[in-house]
């Protein structure tokens, strides 16, 4: 907990010692774990009144957050009549029929699942593989107009989906990429790649260049300094980026709708296909929803600790 020992950061900064402070804080923040964080929270001064308020707020928040999800999972095990009964039914004989239904009949789920895994996984991997050097380059670059470049990168992510889809579609058709996994991967890259570059560049900016410089002095090439010094130190950033890209791609509907076909439809498409003229099969929809949601939740929670530090884009240490 070296952070406790540092002098008042404001003073340090005004004295022009940013480098040292930043380095030290970084050290602290990479080591920080939620448990340690809780020790530093000011509960010693929290009165019972406040504590009750906090517990009530959190209780309500948990209800608000969890009821829809729990209801979805519960409903996925309910018989159809219990789902559409006017009185909500809490007691029922669980049935696996909706899940069974997903794997039999016309639209079997396995290919969808496979497409989702392949397309989302590949696009997340590629985004990190391409985004890491680009983010590093951006962080370390001293070119003029760097800010414009970096703003351009963010702005590509803001492109309105419906407007870019037609030109992209025609481009992909020329390249024979429609209804292929590579095509879907590229489509996902339009929003994942800028995000990855942006996020990773902020991770690299947080690294003190001194570390790489000492590696250079010891005779490393710049690539080696990146590969063996900078990259290992940003592992949390790489993992965060990967998982977020995975979530974005896995959850995408608008692009998948346009660029997929019989050989590449993904899970969200499968979910939307349950909305038919003749009605919505809510049981299957809840089952498929559970199916879409659970893997991403697990992935997200697995890296939650890093998400916390990752998503602040260095704003914490920048103060």
């Amino acid at each position: 907990m070296s952070v406790l020992d540092t002098p008042n950061p404001r003073r340090a900064e005004s004295a022009g010692q940013q480098e040292a402070v930043e380095q030290e804080r970084r050290h602290a923040s990479t080591k920080r774990s939620p448990r340690e964080g809780s020790r530093s929270s000011p509960l010693d001064r929290t009165g019972t009144g406040t504590r009750v308020v906090i517990l009530v707020v959190l209780g309500l928040a948990l209800l608000w957050t969890l009821v829809p999800l729990v209801w979805m999972v519960l409903s996925s095990f309910k018989p159809a009549t219990a789902i559409t009964s006017a009185e909500p039914s809490w007691l029922f004989t669980p049935t696996g029929e909706h899940y069974a239904g997903l794997f039999t009949g016309g639209n079997e789920l396995i290919p969808y699942l496979w497409h989702s895994v392949a397309a989302a996984g590949l696009s997340a991997v590629l985004s990190v593989v391409l985004g890491a050097p680009a983010g590093y380059g951006l962080a370390r670059s001293e070119m003029r107009g760097k800010r414009h470049l970096s703003f351009w990168i963010i702005s590509t992510r803001m492109a309105p989906i419906a407007a870019v889809v037609l030109p992209l579609f025609l481009m992909f058709r020329q390249l024979g990429l429609i209804d292929t996994i590579p095509g879907l991967v590229l489509a996902y890259m339009t929003f994942n790649l800028p995000f990855a570059i942006w996020l990773l560049s902020s991770f690299f900016s947080d690294l003190p260049p001194a570390l790489e410089e000492s590696a250079l002095v010891e005779g490393c090439t710049r690539w080696q300094a990146f590969r063996h010094v900078a990259l290992p130190l940003t592992k949390p950033g790489l993992v965060t980026t990967f998982v977020l890209c995975l979530v974005f791609a896995w959850n995408d509907y608008a692009f998948a709708l346009v660029f997929s076909g019989p050989d590449s439809q993904t899970l969200p498409i499968a979910a939307s296909q349950l909305v038919t003229q003749a009605g919505i099969d809510w049981g299957q929809l809840c089952a498929i929803g559970t199916f879409v949601v659970v893997p991403m939740m697990l992935a997200g929670l697995a890296v939650r600790r890093w998400l916390v530090t990752g998503l602040t884009l260095g704003a914490v240490t920048g103060e």
Binding site: G137, M143, A159, R222
Partner: peptide, 25 residues
């Protein structure tokens, strides 16, 4: 020297991004 290196590092990410966004734009 840095500009050259950082530029080379950025290319593999920036070029596909440009290809995917500038033309449609």
């Amino acid at each position: 020297r840095r500009v050259g290196f950082t530029g080379r590092m950025m290319l593999p990410g920036i070029v596909p991004l440009a290809a995917l966004t500038v033309l449609p734009f």
